[in-house]
Design a protein around this nucleic acid. Structure first.
Length: 461
DNA sequence: GTAGCCTTGACC
DNA sequence: GGTCAAGGCTAC
């Protein structure tokens, strides 16, 4: 059982990881701001030597070397690519080698410090609020068990992330993409994701000059980042048409079968759209496929619940549940026909929607929350844990700044959003447990993404 | 070549 | 005068 204290200590752990500041390149202890961001002393020196001496390295492997404290010396090529990827600035290395003084990043460092300070204060306030609210009950001991060895079936998600067409229903969600592209390859060899990386790190790669050096522009503002998150969201109308068409096709296919409830294909289609969203999203698409899978196996339930909840806030009507197909179902109908778990889920979901409606949470904030859920540094054995931490910090910073700008008279808005996220996580646990129980009694169709996700989550118990 | 420590100097 | 992010020095 997971108590609120557990949840709180996990949040504490996660945020302390952020606040004690590990080097985003190698995970060593940070010694200060160097060349645009907080890094350790050795990566600072490495970056300086590389740029000052105009060094060129080659990778003996496949340019996907893991860079951590113990292995950072092994591959300078991948280490330097990672330095650039996390946002170290070439132009901060002085060409005239003048010592001392301040550079033009002073105001950026100052703003970053102020944001970190404010975030720390708000998170502490949030933690205090959490500890004084009622305890949660759930069975999420398996949440800590995500590991590559624990997956029974990873075929559908893996091929979806690699964009290999499956016989399964999700194939229509998959536009072309470069399989298995890492952030290193992305920066050094491809312009496909220059827009996203550029926005994230203030880097611009001239599309007409693929072999030109990186051109550094002014760093992105947090509001730019929020807009980037929003632009990753699929168009609701297109999604509605696509899923409706797929469901009609499946209905024809299974016309003679009355074994499965129609809700499962819909959940499965929602999961496909979530995977597709993640796969093409800023930051996520730069991760290695193994890390992508680990993050999605961990967060699919929360993303699913958020998808359903946000649709009610943005498009829904009071007293009814709006489906992704655009249909409306009376909540009273659901409650009267459902068992106690679904009735409880419906009631708690309704209350959460009411809270979000009172807060008037907008699409930008929902877009940020999706990234907060996806980039979870608590997921075990991430190869690029430092990158995930760094993205999470950027998302938190962007959301905090957005709430302070859009609601200057409501400084605790960020805290309220985090509290709503906490309730959403609790709801997700309940929903996942429910789905897994239905799966055990054979109610969930096999060979689909939902089935695979349930297996991945519960296989290590 | 690496990485820890030292020196420098603009900004507050 | 203190701070801190640059470059420099040097033992390994």
């Amino acid at each position: 059982m997971l108590s609120l204290t557990d949840l709180s200590s996990r949040m504490e752990c996660r945020y302390d990881v952020g606040l004690e500041e590990l080097c985003p390149v190698c995970g060593d202890k940070v010694s200060g701001y160097h060349y645009g961001l907080l890094t350790c002393e050795s990566c600072k020196g490495f970056f300086k030597r590389t740029v000052q001496n105009n060094k060129t390295y080659a990778c003996a492997e496949n340019q996907q070397c893991r860079i951590d404290k113990t292995q950072r010396k092994r591959c300078p090529f991948c280490r330097f690519q990672k330095c650039l990827h996390v946002g170290m600035r070439l132009e901060a290395v002085r060409s005239d080698r003048m010592r001392g003084g301040r550079n033009k990043f002073g105001p950026i460092y100052k703003r970053d410090r102020a944001l970190k300070q404010q975030k720390k204060a708000l998170i502490q306030a949030c933690r205090f609020n959490l500890q004084s609210s009622s305890p949660l009950t759930s069975t999420t001991h398996q949440r800590d068990c995500i590991s590559p060895g624990g997956f029974h079936s990873v075929a559908i998600l893996h091929s979806t992330l690699l964009n290999i067409d499956q016989a399964s229903s999700m194939s229509s969600f998959l536009p072309p993409n470069s399989p298995g592209v890492t952030q290193h390859q992305c920066i050094s060899h491809s312009n496909n994701c220059a827009g996203s990386i550029g926005l994230a790190a203030g880097i611009f790669i001239d599309p007409l000059e693929p072999h030109s050096r990186l051109i550094f522009t002014q760093g992105p503002t947090m509001s730019q980042l929020v807009m980037e998150f929003l632009s990753c969201d699929p168009d609701e109308l297109q999604l509605q048409k696509k899923i409706t068409a797929r469901l009609q096709q499946e209905q024809k296919w299974h016309r003679d079968s009355n074994t499965f409830s129609p809700i499962y294909p819909m959940v499965d289609q929602l999961l496909c759209s979530i995977v597709e969203w993640a796969r093409t999203s800023i930051f996520f698409k730069q991760l290695k496929v193994n890390d992508q899978m680990k993050l999605l196996h961990h967060s699919w339930g929360e993303l699913l619940v958020l998808d359903i909840i946000s649709r009610q806030v943005i498009y829904g009507k009071e007293g009814s549940l709006r489906l992704v197909t655009g249909q409306e179902v009376e909540l009273s109908n659901i409650v009267s026909h459902a068992g106690p778990t679904v009735a409880s889920l419906t009631q708690r979901g309704k209350e959460l929607v009411e809270r979000l409606n009172i807060l008037k949470v907008d699409r930008q904030e929902f877009a940020c929350i999706k990234f907060l859920i996806l980039f979870n540094p608590d997921v075990k054995e991430l190869e690029e844990h430092g990158f995930v931490v760094s993205v999470l910090e950027q998302v938190e910073g962007a959301l905090l700044e957005y709430t302070l700008t859009s609601s200057p008279h409501h400084p605790s808005r960020f805290t309220h959003l985090l509290l709503c996220l906490s309730e959403l996580r609790s709801l997700s646990t309940l929903a996942e447990d429910y789905l897994y129980c239905r799966h055990l009694i054979g109610e969930v169709p096999s060979n689909n993404l939902l089935n695979e996700m349930l297996h991945a989550k519960y296989s290590c118990t």
